[in-house]
Amino acid sequence: MQKYENYGISENTGRRGEATNQEKAIEINNLTKMYGNHVGVKDLSLTVHKGEIMGFLGPNGAGKTTTIRCCLALIAKTAGEITIFGLDSHRDAVAIRKKTGYLPGDFGLIPSVKVRSYLKYLLSLNGCSSTKKMLSLAERLQLDLDRKTNELSKGNKLKVGIVQSLMTDEDLIIMDEPSGLDPLMQQEFYRILRQEKKHGKTVFMSSHNLAEVESVCDRVAIIRKGQLVVVEDIQVLQEKTGKVLEVEFRDPFNINEFKFDGVSSIRQDNGRLILTIHENLDNVIKAVSNHQILNMNLKTYSLEQLFLKYYAEEEVDERGDA
């Protein structure tokens, strides 16, 4: 199997996708968080600009939640600085929370109260008296406000979490893995996020659901083992990753026929030809048409595949180093 070429993805704290003249919503500089001898996050630097939706990707235990909870002063930092709207994350924690909505990755609700009462209680803690947005969000997400909190399914509990994070109309919304809704509701949730962005809100959301990040995010930061690996515009990343063409021929073929400029990877797998194409798609299709085709599929390179590929390469490199 041929090895992929290097797409130029930075292994350092990649700032390439970041515009320097934009206002900063979150600025994290050299954040380190240790849990005893265990590294939670190490020397992480990241900026989230005002008005963008930033995805924060990484596998379980990579340090996404640790980073977010440091931002909200739920846990102490070991080193580094975090400022949110120019305020110090820990010294000005209460002031920051006045401007921030937060959906935790795992959370519990006060039991045996109606969802409506619970949300009103949270509104009052936020000093917000209007229930207009709460009611609108609940309607859009089809959340029954008259159910008791201890009677909710996992999905409905997540809806409560989403509503409470958005209902106070804060400037910054931080969400820790907001996936788990049914597909229709998930799409509605993405529409809500896009609307928030239109209204000038900043969203910083962690996820290991790459399709989710592709759907709504402007930029993505990838974290692994507590260290930031790459920060990139989603569009640029997708362009870099190209498209994948899978073709099944009736007859044998020679892979050299498909070597064109802009084709980064050529692979043969059980009689199937698998190409990664960045440009020159026209020439590739013409070359393919010289053969009798049984089956063909052209798709956008999934960020998930990129993600998996990237980690696979890292693992190989590490084993090589060892």
């Binding site: 739920l74 929370r97 909505g101 935790p104 959370f107 609700l109 006060i110 949270l122 994070s165």
Partner: peptide
């Protein structure tokens, strides 16, 4: 234990 702290401290409560 019931993980209610995160939601509580997402509000501007010291």
């Amino acid at each position: 234990e019931n993980k209610r702290m995160d939601v509580m401290f997402s509000a501007p409560i010291s």
